[in-house]
Write a protein that binds this DNA or RNA. Structure first.
Lengths: 195, 195
DNA sequence: TTTATTCTTGACTAAATGGTCTGAAAAAGA
DNA sequence: TCTTTTTCAGACCATTTAGTCAAGAATAAA
């Protein structure tokens, strides 16, 4: 009973990532949001709650999606180095794609709000520890499989570094439009795994 | 002739870095600025111009100061690896210091504004190329001095990576309060220079 | 003293802000 | 048909925004 929603809530959420990613949380006005999402003001409030609620939903949705993909790739049997290489190449590819890169920048806006929105701070703390653990377990497996040399004596540090590097690529993309710079950064980042 | 300024303009600029760094450019209201700087509204406009003018001044002042220190350290004769290690350890030290870290976060707010303030975009483009070149020249010297192995066959990429890593540390600091995480990231980052 | 500059305080404005409320049309199931 | 829900449009509101103007007091050089 009752009329159905006319818009796909996750599609609209994706548009919200783009708007928030481009203008930041505070830099995005309600009007920009309405224009960007293509829905009426009341629909926004009915569906997502306040501007802050929508922002939090968008951040969580984006992060969960990306993190899940990373964890899945890390857990797949086979070469761990190949998995990590895939993960970083995929990020670089997304950031080089004129369309796909837009939503990635919500990460930057989200990190902005970490000191001011406790829910976001808690969420990222949880996400970071989850990802760090996934990288760590993968590295342990890599070591057992003989993919790492004795040079890599601190797998915990390496896991933290990889997760940080993953996050930081969007910052690099915001500072340069040259795809070669991005490739160079990824290349050297991955060289931390070389023997 | 005429009354002298009662406040040190660069000291106040430093306070502006802290306020803008904590709340972001859009998240900072004029009232926050007045409270944080401890000067009257009219003094702000007389001395720095608009809010945006003040922001740009703060960003440039901070960046120039940091960049100059890095270039100076890189140009000093002796071990290049030691210089780079020093540079990163200094950043980590600043980010771990309860007081000093505050102004560092203006970097994050500045990067936020890159797509919206052409003057900031141009400034960072210039700063990045200057720093990249400084790192590159230092790496060439390192190679000549026998500090690098044949593994490091792309010094341009390495230079870009180092400059990016420098920038990205403030992002890492925003996401974690654990100083060990920061140390781990620096440690692995620097391992890119190992043979 | 005269003149020029800076200081502080406070009033003021025009615009934009996020958010609420109302009302009516549209659509879908009971 | 009746009920429920969604959608859109627009009015509305209290608050906040960045920025300006004015006026008087303080200070310092000419």
């Amino acid at each position: 009973m009752g009329r159905n929603k006319e818009f796909d809530t996750t599609v609209v959420l994706r548009k919200a990532m783009e708007v928030f990613g481009h203008y930041g949380y505070e830099g995005t006005s309600l009007q920009m949001l309405l224009d960007g999402l293509g829905i009426a003001r009341q629909s926004l409030y009915d569906t997502y709650g306040t501007k802050k609620d929508l922002f939090i939903s968008a951040v969580k949705h984006y992060t969960n999606e990306k993190s899940a993909a990373v964890v899945t790739r890390l857990d797949r049997p086979g070469s761990v180095k190949a998995a990590i290489t895939d993960i970083f190449r995929e990020i670089a590819a997304a950031l080089k794609d004129e369309v796909r890169r837009k939503e990635c920048f919500i990460m930057h806006s989200a990190i902005d709000q970490v000191p001011h929105v406790p829910e976001i701070a808690a969420f990222f703390e949880q996400d970071a520890s989850r990802l760090e653990e996934a990288f760590y377990q993968a590295l342990v497996r890599a070591y057992k499989q003989g993919e790492l040399s004795d040079r890599h004596n601190d797998l915990r540090a390496l896991a933290r570094y990889l997760n940080h590097s993953r996050y930081s690529l969007t910052q690099a993309a915001k500072l340069t439009s040259d795809p070669k710079v991005l490739d160079d950064i990824v290349k050297v980042t991955l060289s931390a795994l070389d023997s």
